[in-house]
Design a protein around this nucleic acid. Structure first.
Lengths: 327, 327
DNA sequence: CTGAAAGCGCTTACAG
DNA sequence: CTGAAAGCGCTTACAG
């Protein structure tokens, strides 16, 4: 079953078995053949948990991500995983369902399981978690998020600028009453709100807080936001949803309420997931370089896993992706 | 750093530290307090890989799933994970990108990492893999799939019947030329094809193989299937896409080609993911009990992890979920 | 090139 | 109730 049995049956030492298994040292062809033969015949399966214990390395990376904007996060994960897997790492995914408390427990979980590094895609302001992150012994890269005051490397876009550009885009289409749907109280959302405000101010349009609607970055919450706007009789000629998934919900609800898109209401999304090209109408959106974010986050982590230091923030370019929802 | 340091500092044995850590045996309040104090002060983090080695249990479940029909598989994963997590298990996700070879290597990976059990959502016909699955020492439950000849427990719907019912539904809406898009050569797809054929035969409609289009269960491939049908001038008044994601691609392409849905072409999906209610028009679909599949698969696995035997196949009921894409 | 032995950080019979 | 010690399945200096 174990290396010991293999060794005995092949008439060699466990050291030799270990060496042919890992190719760490030269082993004579004869012994190699003998060992391999026994391994094959016995159907021996190496025990990586024992291996991890002595190496103090699990070849596992922890990934903490929120359960909203699934298509966006999933795509980042997909690209990051591809790189990590190629480098011999597996990934332990933690999907944060609810509150900050949950980030805490996932962090503990990953640490107890001795992941070699972490990709963090979920913001938190929990001071205890922040403290833990700060004195983390393992490399961590923040992906798509910014946790101010933490000197960890980041890979993301400039959310302020992106929202500013998105808002400008809507303004350039003669929109005056732009509802903004997003999650407030977090760094990313708040920065985007600032970008929106700045663009409005520059256009000489007064900020109206009744147009700022809280959303949970799900299709359903996009739909609810529109319901709210209409129920409260808040006039609006555009919706800027801070995730494409919310935008999908927004469009569905608008159509259901008999509104034309974009004739009555223009809709602009955020993220640039594939789905936006398959909706009817197609979705204009502020596009994040999703693939690049995933790849670069993984590569950055790998570099750190290989001993490189990094605190650098990598800001990737966003762009406006046109669609029939804004015209 | 380790339990040994904690023990020394608290003036107790490592056994005692282990006991208060795990609550496995009664420890006097005084020692307990002392140990806890040191643990807290030192910020000790338990090492679960060492723990796993001696316990021969990793509290990890492996999940092998395809990278297509992501929203469907993701939802099953979501529900299964919820149950598993509650029971103290974490899950190691393997997302199969390409061929059968890849299932093989993921299987090896999971076995080497000593997962306690596995949920398999990806079909395979690779004989070596089949052999490995057959003599698996750990519990495995097949989820949403059927691998004939393997006496492993399954949780899924009756794919034959579901496709039969879906086809009947389209037929009852006076559709005569129903294109079927799916993946052939696999158990699930082939069964659905049989259901389709039977329904057609019962309705006295001759089977036309030019209406059977291969697809990869992605939005893009749904779109391509429609392009193919139109390019080849194959007349059709309905499309039965064997995943909702393909159906979304189908609808997008139909609209783009100026076809009315359902006036010119009715579209029926398969799976019943949330997105179908957010498309325009809303998607009629053959609905799988996704939540139940996920939950029951996880519960079944947990039961086996607790020593229960099971080879039972659990067939869950499907249903037709109406939508404006079929009227 | 190969092997004996120590050690990775825990858990748990076994004694006391 | 508590502790000394063996052992989980590996890797790797250290000798030879």
């Amino acid at each position: 079953m174990g290396i010991k049995e293999i060794a005995k049956e092949a008439n060699v030492s466990v050291a030799t078995v270990s060496r042919v298994l890992n190719g760490t040292k030269f082993v004579s062809e004869e012994l190699q053949r003998k060992v391999l033969e026994v391994i094959e015949r016995q159907g021996y399966v190496a025990n990586h948990v024992a291996r991890s214990m002595v190496l103090k390395k699990t070849f596992t990376v922890g990934l903490i991500m929120p359960v909203v904007s699934e298509l966006y996060h999933q795509m980042i994960f997909t690209h990051a995983e591809f790189i990590l897997e190629e480098a011999g790492y597996k990934v332990l995914v933690c999907r944060v369902k609810d509150t900050a408390q949950s980030v805490q427990s996932y962090l503990d979980l990953l640490l107890e399981n001795r992941v070699d590094g972490m990709i963090l895609m979920h913001e938190t302001s929990n001071p205890k978690v922040l403290e833990q992150l700060k004195k983390s012994q393992i490399p961590i890269v923040l992906t798509g998020i910014d946790i101010p005051g933490l000197s960890l490397p980041q890979v993301r876009i400039d959310d302020y600028q992106a929202a500013y550009d998105g808002t400008k885009y809507l303004l350039s289409h003669e929109k005056k009453r732009i509802a903004l749907i997003g999650g407030w109280g977090y760094s990313v959302g708040d920065k985007r709100l600032e970008g929106y405000k700045t663009a409005l101010a520059e256009a000489g349009i007064e900020f109206d807080s009744s147009l700022i609607i809280p959303g949970f970055y799900t299709m359903q919450s996009g739909s609810q936001a529109v319901k709210l706007l209409i129920r409260e009789r808040i006039g609006f000629d555009a919706v800027f949803a801070l995730s494409d998934e919310m935008a999908v919900g927004v469009m569905k609800e608008l159509l259901e309420q008999g509104k034309g898109i974009p004739s009555d209401v223009a809709v602009l999304g955020f993220d640039g997931i594939e789905l936006g090209q398959y909706t009817n109408p197609t979705l204009a959106t502020v596009k994040q370089p999703i693939e690049q974010i995933g790849i670069l986050a993984a590569e950055r982590l790998l570099a750190m896993l290989n001993g490189e230091e990094s605190e650098e923030t990598l800001i990737l370019p966003h762009s406006i992706s046109p669609g029939n929802s804004v015209r």
